[in-house]
Design a protein around this nucleic acid. Structure first.
Lengths: 259, 259
DNA sequence: TAGTGGTCTAGACCACGTA
DNA sequence: ACGTGGTCTAGACCACTAC
């Protein structure tokens, strides 16, 4: 019954780890396919003959690994292998901007998602040390900060905050909610700052509770952090974009020469 | 006593979340600096007047976030902000190879670490679908698989497996443990495959229990995954390198033109 | 030996989702 | 109403570390 192995007396691992391993194997073997429901805690208590807290500890381990997620009142479900959005480094190519598309539209289109943006907030603020350093401006100069949240098929996948020196944004639609076709990069170029190159700094970590809420992720799912700096043809940094992406939703692609 | 806030009756959050938040704030405010020890579970039980399991649940949350780690028999400690190794995309530049240095040496030198490599295993095996696709060879052709583990100052930070088509490795030191100065890229170039460009695919996820063991990481620390493909001047893929890095130890840097 | 965290039990009551 | 997971209690014994 339950089509699950039972505990091995000789196994010296902690009981909850053994149970986690049994469930993990069953999931990997597709005995519980993506999206399916695991046996309830009560059933697992009966099957393994242990206390409920022991079962919960095993499930906690699988949740931390991101293998399953619990829904209060419904059950524990195998997480669907998330569709991956591949981000190629030509996503900022000028040809896309000229067609009036934002980089996020380009990404989404290439994999068949419906892209949307919400929570757009535009304000002026003093640059943080990290932003000021990348923009090569004094530490408390004012910048225009544009924060927003990206959604794919209605589900949050990324937050982003762009910082632009006030001098480059003043009098353009960069300070309006709707920046117009092609987004802020198109506006910067109209303003004489022809974009020449980007740098990106990529890392990963666990999200803060705040980020978990904004991105609506379960505990145990890491985020990719990406800080992009855009330089114009004179080598002047014109924008820093600080993004936090749900790791399971993204694969970043880069290409570079061997010199 | 303990210099910690107490529980707020009116706070509607679960008790363990409230306790976790109190501890998190204390850590962020440096009341418990990096490396310092938190009060013992017994002390926290007394301070907050709750059951031990409730305290443990709060600590579990902080562990999942990677903020603290427990040492059996010693205590719970605030995790030190890990030193970051920045990986620039010129780390495979030919000038470094000509100086007899491997890419990992270059990385380590640039930040003052002592680099070392262990667990080197070289064997022939059938290509996995993922590797075969990237190398553009039939799905069960044989490849040379070189796996190893990188350490910085003696601590594991990354595992890597390189796959090279047998035809390109045969008769070179690529199949020996010690590949000689400049590593496998230098050997490939001596063999007529002048490297022209690389692609890298970057993602992040939680480590498998196996990876956690190999990299000696605590639960709750994500890994960066990086698959690099090397192409020679004829556009032929000559190597696929599949790496898993401790996320907190790395920051990847890329640069690309705006077209 | 004393103190620490690790594991486990056997209950209890609550909040949520479904029917 | 019922079954699900979420939270919490009040213990127990064990394994590890430090002295």
């Amino acid at each position: 019954m339950l089509q699950l192995d039972t505990l091995d007396e000789n196994d010296e691992r902690a009981t909850y780890r053994q149970i986690a391993a049994i469930l993990r194997t069953a999931i990997e073997d597709q005995r519980f396919p993506a999206g399916s429901q695991l046996p309830s805690e009560a059933e697992l208590v009966k099957h393994f003959g242990v206390a409920r807290m022991t079962i919960r500890q095993a499930l906690q381990e699988l949740r931390t690994e991101g293998l399953v997620h619990a829904e209060h009142g419904r059950g524990v479900f195998v997480r669907a292998a998330s569709p991956i959005k591949r981000l190629a480094s030509d996503r900022f190519a000028r040809k896309h901007r000229e067609a009036g598309k934002s980089a996020f539209d380009v990404e989404a289109e290439s994999v068949g998602y419906t892209a949307s943006v919400d929570s757009i907030v535009v304000r002026r603020e003093k640059a943080t040390p990290s932003v000021a350093e990348r923009l090569r401006i004094p530490a408390d100069d004012e910048v225009v900060a544009r924060s927003r949240r990206y959604l794919a098929d209605g589900r949050p996948v990324e937050t982003a905050v762009s910082y632009i020196p006030v001098a480059f944004a003043e009098g353009t639609r960069i300070e309006e909610i709707d920046t117009g076709p092609g987004g802020i990069y198109a506006r910067l170029e109209e303003n004489g700052h022809i974009l020449a190159r980007f740098t990106e700094e990529v890392g990963a970590r666990m999200p803060t509770p705040d980020e978990r809420r904004t991105l609506a992720t379960a505990p145990g799912i890491p985020v990719l952090t990406l800080i992009r700096t855009a330089y114009d043809s004179s080598g002047v940094p014109v924008e820093v974009c600080d993004t936090v992406k749900i790791a399971s939703a993204y694969l970043l692609e880069y290409e570079f020469p061997a010199h």
